[in-house]
Amino acid sequence: MNPVNYLYLAALLFTIGAAGVLIRRNAIVIFMCVELMLNACNLAFVTFARLHGNLDGQIIAFFTMVVAAAEVVVGLAIIVTIFRSRHSASVDDAGLLKL
C-alpha cells in the first residue's frame, strides 16, 4: 500500500467535514465538523512528514492542534454566550445582519 492513500482519506474526511459545515444548523455540530476538517489536515501533514522523511509536517500538525484547542475554547464560549441570550444554537437564528 502506498501512504498516499492516507492523503485520499484526509481529502475525503475534509470534504465530509465541509459538507457538515454547509448543511448543519446547530453551531456545535458545525464546530465539530470544523474540527473534523482540521483533523483531516493534520492527517495529511503527518503523512507528508512521512513521505518527506522529516518531522516538519508533524510540527505543523502539532501547532494546528494547539490552535484548534484555542479555537474550540473561544468558539464554544461564544456559542454558550449566544445560547444564553438567544436560547438557540442555530446559526440561522444569528441573523441580525440579515436584510
Partner: peptide, 10 residues
C-alpha cells in the same frame, strides 16, 4: 493512523 505514520507523540 498517526502512530502508524511514525508520529508517536502526535
Amino acid at each position: 493512523f498517526y502512530l502508524a505514520n511514525g508520529a508517536y507523540f502526535l
